[in-house]
């Protein structure tokens, strides 16, 4: 499979990069690890006239502390995150999620920024050009029909990042920069929840940093991540769940649940319980919430109905693990 033609720029500074993004907005795509972009371009799903490589720009890679936060540069490879002792001790579920992305040779190139900004997927869309040529373009491909659901008026493609749900559970923020501008926002605000255009990011903006707050002594929460896949290597999640459970001084329990692969964006739910509530009562409420918030149709390799059940099972397992870990910490 060949790549369509494009011209590539390799700016050496962030400023140089912002100028390029500004000048060619709409015609230019950022290439970080390239493990997603190259596939989309080979399939002819993206045909940018220009690419901008991040490889020579200093300051976009690496993990560092800033006050009460850990900062991860957008171009940091997953492999570096997996090997970082600091990440392992502060945010172990982030390491778990990175290890679950594809397989080690992809983790060696894939970056955290590219992972967050990976496009939504659908078996009728993520196909070779030859396959798609026989069909009318769908909503995501610029047409006006949905191939997954007859008469579908919107795009049902699925956001399958393993890392974003965990970052949401950790309350991470992203820094977005462009020529002359810089802003920071909760990662949830990156998502439009629309399959046709999943991100709020504009064509001249670069996601430069991920900032994860380091939990204070009082409110230490435990985050866990569960991924449902059929094979143990090289498989996007069919359903996933990140859970954050924290118990405050008064015995109040807070549960934040983030479901992945359930629509065009991860879905965040939060619950509060008092210590006396039984786990059954809690689970009933939580799983009802999951049912209401998630959508799954037959547009991945497993049936929607099946995946819909798996959201609840992943949620249950993630929450159970988090409670078990908290109990273990208490008895230590």
């Amino acid at each position: 499979m060949r790549l369509p033609p494009f011209e590539i720029f390799e700016p050496k500074t962030k400023g140089g990069g912002f100028n390029l993004l500004n000048r060619y907005k709409g015609d230019i795509k950022v290439i970080s690890g390239g493990t997603e972009l190259v596939v989309l371009m080979k399939d002819g799903l993206l045909r940018p006239r220009y690419l901008m490589s991040l490889k020579n720009i200093k300051g976009l890679k690496g993990i560092r502390r800033k006050g009460r936060s850990l900062i991860i540069g957008c171009a940091t490879p997953l492999e570096e995150i997996i090997k970082s002792r600091e990440v392992k001790s502060l945010f172990p579920a982030l390491v778990d999620a990175c290890i679950l992305v594809a397989a080690p040779p992809i983790q060696n190139r894939a970056t955290i920024g590219g992972n967050i900004l990976q496009d939504t997927r659908c078996i009728y869309y993520n196909q070779t050009e030859i396959f798609r040529n026989g069909l009318e373009p769908c909503l995501k491909g610029g047409g006006n029909l949905c191939r997954a659901i007859k008469g579908g008026k919107r795009c049902f493609s699925v956001y399958q990042s393993d890392i974003a749900p965990v970052l949401i559970a950790y309350d991470a923020k992203v820094k977005i920069e462009s020529k002359g501008e810089s802003k920071s926002m909760p990662i949830m605000e990156l998502f439009t929840d629309k399959g046709e255009k999943p991100f709020t990011l504009e064509g001249d903006e670069l996601l430069t940093e991920i900032e994860i707050p380091i939990p204070g002594n009082g409110g230490k929460g435990i985050v866990t991540y569960k991924k449902f896949r059929v094979r143990d290597g090289i498989e996007y999640p069919f359903a996933s769940a990140a859970a954050m459970v924290s118990i405050n001084g008064g015995g109040q329990e807070n549960v934040v649940l983030v479901i992945g692969a359930c629509g065009a964006s991860p879905k965040r739910l939060s619950f509060s319980f008092s210590e006396g509530d039984t786990i059954e009562a809690k689970m009933g409420e939580i799983l009802d919430g999951v049912d209401k918030k998630t959508v799954a149709i037959d547009n991945l390799a497993l049936p929607g109905e099946y995946r819909k059940e798996m959201f609840k099972i992943m949620a249950k397992r993630a929450i159970k693990d988090a409670y078990d870990l908290i109990r273990k910490e208490k008895t230590l």
């Binding site: 590539i8 493990t35 190259v38 596939v39 690419l51 490889k55 492999e79 992809i106 190139r109």
Partner: peptide
């Protein structure tokens, strides 16, 4: 020294 996919790696990278 690290295994990578050469089919996904632009030659310029």
């Amino acid at each position: 020294g690290r295994p990578v996919r050469s089919c996904l790696l632009l030659v310029t990278e």
